[in-house]
């Protein structure tokens, strides 16, 4: 096992370097001059050239990549050219806000998806199953930014029950677990949770249906087991697939949603990415993308290790 862990960690290194290269290239392939966004609208080409030299962007791309990678390796992601603040500070703040939203939406999606899927699976082809299906198909089909706008119109504008945007009340400096802040979390949570919830519910339903068709369930029933004891066995057998899907969905949510966060002006990584793109803030854009992609590399590594721990066959593969 130790050897496998070591091997797997070593594999992650070239993947991580590859990711940094892709992140760096993508930002540079994008059309438009990153320096231009820094300067006033009236600036001339000569001023652009001057600023380019000042930021070291006139050097060949491989050199720029090397310099960037070397400082990123030491944890220094540079300074945002828009705000002048350290990129690591900006990203850290945003990641935290996204994590709050991801945990909240993840909980909602997992609990609601699990219950809905189970109910639909147990009462297969009954009206309740059809209703859940309608609900979950809508869930996967609705674009989440559209749902976000709709939620705002209905619950914030028309009914005025919940705040339309922001992380907390006007004088808030950051998220805290109190009611004024929780109110701000409700709509973004629903918008973020809709798709994962539907996916989880559909997976859970399929697994439950699958398990119910298996012979051991018939045997259990024939043995005269109480329905709730049968249910327990069904859930236990349906759970692994659903859990795997839940994990994937949670991972996606932790990456933050550019669209949902923009609609709710939620200052997470998605919102940060969007503003970095619009301001062409190269260090900020590269730093945010790097942190997010490294996060996925690490997440994958952890998932692999856990899987191999639970299922030794993977280790031998």
């Amino acid at each position: 096992m130790l050897f496998y862990v070591l091997r797997r960690v070593l594999y992650a290194v070239p993947i991580a370097i590859g990711v940094t290269f892709i992140v760096f290239s993508l930002v540079h392939i994008a059309p438009g001059d990153p320096i231009s966004a820094l300067l006033p609208n009236e600036a001339t080409q000569e001023m652009v050239e001057q600023a380019r030299r000042e930021f070291g962007l006139d050097k060949p791309l491989p050199v720029q990549y090397g310099v960037w990678l070397a400082s990123a390796a030491t944890g220094n992601l540079g300074t945002s050219i828009g705000s002048g603040r350290p990129v690591s500070e900006e990203v850290a703040g945003a990641v935290w806000n996204t994590v709050i939203l991801a945990i909240s939406a993840g909980l909602v999606a997992c609990v609601a998806g699990f219950i809905l899927g189970m109910v639909a699976g147990l009462w297969r082809d009954r009206p309740v199953d059809h209703m859940v299906s309608l609900f979950t198909i809508s869930g996967v089909s609705l674009p989440h930014y559209w749902l976000a706008i709709l939620l705002v119109i209905v619950f914030a504008v028309n009914l005025n029950w919940l705040p339309p945007l922001g992380i907390g009340p006007d004088n808030s400096d950051g998220w805290r677990p109190d009611w004024p802040h929780l109110r701000h979390l409700i709509l973004p949570t629903i918008a973020t949770a809709a798709i994962p919830m539907a996916v989880i519910a559909r997976t859970m339903r399929a697994s439950v249906v699958d398990v119910l068709d298996q012979e051991f369930v018939t045997t259990l029933r024939a043995k005269g087991l109480l329905p709730r004891r049968v249910l327990w066995h069904v859930i236990r057998n349906a759970l692994p697939t659903t859990l795997a899907v839940m994990g994937l969905q949670l991972g996606n949510m932790l990456g933050g949603s550019v669209l949902v966060e923009t609609v709710f002006a939620w200052p997470g990584t998605g919102f940060l990415l969007a503003s970095a793109i619009f301001q062409r803030d190269l260090p900020l854009l590269q730093g945010t993308m790097l942190v997010l992609s490294m996060f996925f590399v690490i997440l994958n590594l952890v998932v692999d290790l856990i899987q191999s721990w639970t299922d030794p066959r993977i280790r031998r593969a």
Binding site: I149, V152, I153, A156, V157, N160, P163, P164, L165, T262, V263, F264, A265, A274, S275, F278
Partner: peptide, 13 residues
């Protein structure tokens, strides 16, 4: 608030 629909909603609410 860069998103125009969010600005509108913020004003209306």
């Amino acid at each position: 608030i860069p998103e125009v629909s969010a600005r509108t909603a913020a004003l209306l609410s």
